[in-house]
């Protein structure tokens, strides 16, 4: 019998950057995307697709 999965407590992480397997996009929160990004691209996030 596999061990039952215990529910985790999740850290509140509004500033987390994650790669989404559904969309294929690796998006950053807006504050991180602002690094070196002064051309109005805020909202796009620093993103890549994987």
């Amino acid at each position: 019998m596999p061990e039952p999965v215990q529910p985790l407590t999740f850290l509140a992480a509004d500033d987390a950057a994650v790669c989404d397997p559904v969309t294929g996009v690796c998006a950053a929160p807006d504050d991180e995307s602002e690094v070196g990004n002064d051309d109005g691209a805020r909202g796009e996030g620093a993103a890549s697709a994987r």
Binding site: L8, T9, F10, A13, D15
Partner: peptide
């Protein structure tokens, strides 16, 4: 196996 962090967070977090 108790605390989860979804995504990359700052080092301080």
């Amino acid at each position: 196996r108790r605390l989860g962090i979804p995504g990359a967070v700052p080092t301080e977090a």
